[in-house]
Write a protein that binds this DNA or RNA. Structure first.
Lengths: 151, 151
DNA sequence: GCACGCTTGTTGGCATATCCAACAATTGGC
DNA sequence: GCCAATTGTTGGATATGCCAACAAGCGTGC
């Protein structure tokens, strides 16, 4: 038994963690999320909110359930998300012409403007995130991640 | 103006989302986290708890602050994490010989046993996750993620 | 020595985010 | 027209995270 208290100067032993996709995924996520929050705090947008705006823009009239499916979250999780966007007058819960149970989600003009602004900004944000990656590497990463995410 | 209600049969328009590292990261994370929860529910371990066990095992006597730093979370977030592991008698908050403020974290024998079991299981879990990846691709993904996470 | 500033763990307040189960309204197949 | 399924919502339960404040303890400068 040599040492029980690790030397803080020496770097830590991460054990199996380093080789785990799950762990590296989380580390990357923390870094990206943190930078995103900084970059978007004046627009007051979270990644989930941006995702919702982008999906509603690309698929106007989308239902909340369909949005939840596309985002990979439960439909009950979509409620407060849209509540917030609706309170900020970015999204409208329009009545669906086909189905009186569901809401046809639409971007308000302000929502569309904010999305356009956010799309410009997200490009700069992504450039910072991918600064350590060459363009082919970036594409490779996207493709490999998509394959993991398709599970 | 052709359609306001998107055809559910046709796949959705994801707009810029598909090309965003942040988005693909989140999708992958959801898939991995979901599978992890299934695989570890009988051991009752979350990814964060496994990370803590692995780090304590590799660095016995670690302080809570150092653990938080290694996990990338706030020191106050570590408290309930260790609380839970200590309640389950997997981790011990031993007094630090050097500093009476801090706790020297140690695995209990039960904690060490559980970690060994979990390490075996995490390998199987990762194999499922990476099923769509060749071994070189898996390595590439780990390396690219590590570069993103080093931000 | 010893005073002041820093660190450590903890608590409390707060905000998300997520799930599941139940519910009423509504739809659609038969 | 009946009945099962779906839609949005609510409520309850967890988790996860941050920040700010606090007491205890440490250590540097003098």
């Amino acid at each position: 038994m040599s040492e029980t208290v690790p030397d803080p100067k020496r770097s830590l032993d991460f054990g199996i963690l380093t080789g785990l996709i799950g762990y590296q995924l989380r580390r990357a996520q923390v870094a990206v999320f943190g930078h995103f929050a900084d970059a978007f705090k004046d627009l007051d947008l979270t990644p989930g909110q941006l995702g919702a705006l982008a999906l509603i823009h690309g698929n106007p009239g989308l239902s909340q359930s369909a949005l939840g499916g596309a985002l990979g979250v439960d439909r009950s999780t979509v409620v407060p998300l849209i509540d917030r966007l609706e309170t900020r007058a970015l999204v409208v819960r329009a009545p669906s012409p086909k189905d009186r149970r569901s809401h046809a989600l639409q971007l308000s003009p302000a929502g569309a403007r904010l999305l356009a602004e956010a799309e410009a900004r997200v490009r700069a944000h992504e450039a910072v995130i991918a600064a350590r990656l060459s363009e082919p590497e970036r594409r490779t990463l996207l493709e490999l991640l998509a394959r993991i995410g398709a599970g």
